[in-house]
Write a protein that binds this DNA or RNA. Sequence first.
DNA 1: CGACTAATTGATCCAGTTCAATTCATGTGG
DNA 2: CCACATGAATTGAACTGGATCAATTAGTCG
Lengths: 241, 241
Amino acid sequence: MLYLDSAPNSSSAHAVAPVRGVAIPPAPAVGGLEACMAAGAVRAVKAREHIFNAGDARTHVFRVEAGAICLYKIMPDGRRQVIDFAYPGDYIGLGCDPEHALNAQALEPVRLRSLPAATLSRLAGRDPMLGLKMYEAMAHELAAAQDHLFTIGQRSAAERVACFLLALSRRNKRRDKDPGVVVLPMTRSDIADFLGLTIETISRMLTKLRHAKIIDLEQCTLVKILDGNALERLAGGEAAL
Amino acid sequence: MLYLDSAPNSSSAHAVAPVRGVAIPPAPAVGGLEACMAAGAVRAVKAREHIFNAGDARTHVFRVEAGAICLYKIMPDGRRQVIDFAYPGDYIGLGCDPEHALNAQALEPVRLRSLPAATLSRLAGRDPMLGLKMYEAMAHELAAAQDHLFTIGQRSAAERVACFLLALSRRNKRRDKDPGVVVLPMTRSDIADFLGLTIETISRMLTKLRHAKIIDLEQCTLVKILDGNALERLAGGEAAL
DNA sequence: CGACTAATTGATCCAGTTCAATTCATGTGG
DNA sequence: CCACATGAATTGAACTGGATCAATTAGTCG
């Protein structure tokens, strides 16, 4: 999943700089991707359907308009690692191999917009800002993957679950949604394969968090965060359960 | 670490190529990064010294000329995750946060060339190919991080060690070095923190591989691969120890 | 309502950790 | 050049967090 901008945060240093003066006739200005996407084909995907599979030709890049997506790798023996979840506003399918490296499966009914990869690379060859945006997006995703690596390599089961819930809560905050209520469109199995744990462990850790009054679970797809600070201390390894 | 080309595989447009003639006034041609780097400041770093730390301002991008580097994240409580190792030809320090997200430590005496980040972003704003190359490099690194994620999340200790040795062997093959002999410039502790295991487990797994006649360990920094196929079957989960 | 799938909970097990010695390298000063 | 100091690696024994196996229980969809 990718951020390819959107947000109005001009924070990142290098970047993107004043666009004026870059507006050359042929290439669209910055934001061209979004503009192109807006004109792109809409695709509806039913829950559980795959959008693409590892090994498929990378013909298109997609932006998620609605619904949640699970991106994963799987071995012949069935072991699966969920790499990321993508939500509305995220881009999926970017990369520079001619083939997708991941499987992308809709967790619920999904609406996408698609852009042919060839179009994207043609535009990027003309507009330096577009290439830079793509670079920025990949850098962002790389940073997320590195954090995830830390979580899986070093944290305990309880810490991993706490990190996971916090990440969803923070995403809500960024999108101006309630950070105190987290919806889980994925199954326990998806969470387990994301965190390198089993469904039983996920379930037990959620129960422990509930008993510690840190969260509440009204339905199994809906987490209320009762004590965000405790959750952060847990995620940071400053506390245990 | 990043590949931003190097190797004599003409596939990527700007292979190392002759540097002469690249000095064009406004925007350097493709391969500009390498050319600029060639003119960049050289920096020598002693073994165990840090090149930069997480949180430092990202003022420069580096290319490794000689020596090996360990890139890691660390928590206040001392838990450490090694994210990657960088070797000659790799770039380190790329990214779009204003601050480094990783610590970079020399594992042995290292020689680097550096390019100010500001220069790089200025050039990339003019030359679409440069931005695209940076995108490509990040995409490559992201793919590697995702593989690493799978390894740590799903594979057993023996499989992880096998994957690690295979990755080094394949790197050798790419660089036209002997894929049958792998040098380990890092300590067992670095390997352990890279694979999410302990030094004892690394040691035990290497011993098991040695007893199974899959590798030989003449010195603890030098691995001879005796049975590459067995190693690959192990890494792929098709065999056990 | 009944059938099926997802989630929870409990009991047992085991891969990898932790703790504790050795052993092996490497470098340093006499 | 050797003896000794120091940190790295190996090896062994005991322990444990999370996995596995095994029922229930709770949702959800025809």
